[in-house]
Design a protein around this nucleic acid. Structure first.
Lengths: 211, 211
DNA sequence: CGGCACCTTACCCGATTGTGTAATAGTTTG
DNA sequence: CAAACTATTACACAATCGGGTAAGGTGCCG
């Protein structure tokens, strides 16, 4: 039984090429294709689609919003982004919106087909460049985190602060006086270039200075 | 010119099979293979390796620590994890440690070779299951984030707090009195089950209630 | 040995934070 | 329409926070 497939792509030539190409595969049946995804959720339901190929830059609501809607009403439908955009925001927004794959448009037809196959087998296909971005995302923070030159003690205090402890609680848990804690935090705030505890916590978490 | 390849794998049969298999490829030359990675950084330098296949569970220092050392002394060397472990910690620790790919041992030889090829072309190959885990990691937080039932106004105030604003600054930017801000934050703290601003910021960031 | 960086404590003081209580008013929902 | 929820403001009070300033102790390195 072939998977029911929907295509959302505003470039009409590309849309038709994709439709023909993917229809040639015995595994897929292109149920319909549209130049925008304003009613994507309805259309997915109408054709009982198993799989969606989604462009990002389209008139009306964009592909990222489109994924959200589809996943909201039909979480089990697989959605693979297919776009020329390779910037971090588009990639991560799409993934967070619920996309199951992210293929750039420089992908060969053969690779696209195998990506669609992979997603139906529970995978999460992405173009090499996208995969690299994703890996970088995990690593990047760690690089900067060492530039603040926090001492071991300062990191310890900061960690306790992030966990929600008050100065007094930190003092108790660190077995030092509250004034010491105060001093440490004062130094920490200077090193992080922040003015208060909440800002320090935000910076510590964003830059992964603490877990 | 074939890439110089090193293999770290404690299972001697698998190690030898891999060596033979990969040596058959014209693109790769297995320079050496070892049952542990205690001196991985030295060995990488000795053979001027371009690429490393790394097991995780090995006697002595583990593969994750091995990647760290290699990347520390030779950041340009590509490292592909090759392991049977598919738990979140191992996967994310490896990636953060600097791994360029993560292939499970159920990968077919053909797929492994193409993964190694992909990594040399600047990609970040991973088994479908791993890719799925990675995608989930981006999404997971968003799921819970809606369970706190914060109102639009509360989210707005919380966002300003996370940015490091004081009560007074939030009041100004929201065009309300400081007492209103106080009240909103009080409600927010209750909804998040926290007792102070720092804790709220930590929770907001971890659960991605705010960007 | 003399700096240098780090950890430690103390005190003062103003500003901020967090809680409790109470009241008014608009909106949504049953 | 009434009830429930939300947004708003106000006041009082205790606790905490954050800055400034000063100073004693440790351990390391040239």
């Amino acid at each position: 039984m072939a998977y029911q497939l929907l295509i959302f792509e505003d470039n009409s030539r590309l849309r038709e090429s994709l439709a023909i190409l993917l229809n040639d595969e015995t595994n897929f049946h292109v149920a319909a294709s549209y130049p925008d995804c304003d009613k994507a959720d309805k259309q997915v339901e109408k054709y009982k689609a198993d799989l969606v190929v989604m462009d990002i830059d389209m008139p009306g609501i964009g592909g990222v919003e489109g994924v959200k809607r589809i996943k909201n009403s039909n979480p089990e439908v697989k959605v693979v982004m297919h776009t020329m955009f390779d910037d971090d925001n588009r990639i991560f927004d799409s993934i967070c919106a619920g996309a199951d794959g992210y293929m750039l448009k420089n992908t060969s037809p053969l690779q696209l087909v195998s990506a669609l196959q992979e997603v139906m087998n529970g995978g999460a296909p992405m173009s090499p460049f996208v995969a690299q971005k994703v890996f970088q995302h995990f690593r990047q923070a760690k690089i900067e985190s060492e530039q603040f030159n926090l001492t071991a003690r300062e990191k310890e205090v900061l960690e306790l602060l992030v966990k929600g402890n008050s100065y007094k609680m930190i003092a108790d848990k660190s077995f030092v006086s509250i004034d010491t804690v105060k001093k440490h935090l004062q130094n920490i705030y200077h090193k992080l270039h922040v003015n208060c505890g909440t800002e320090a916590v935000a910076k510590a978490l964003r830059h992964k200075i603490v877990g």
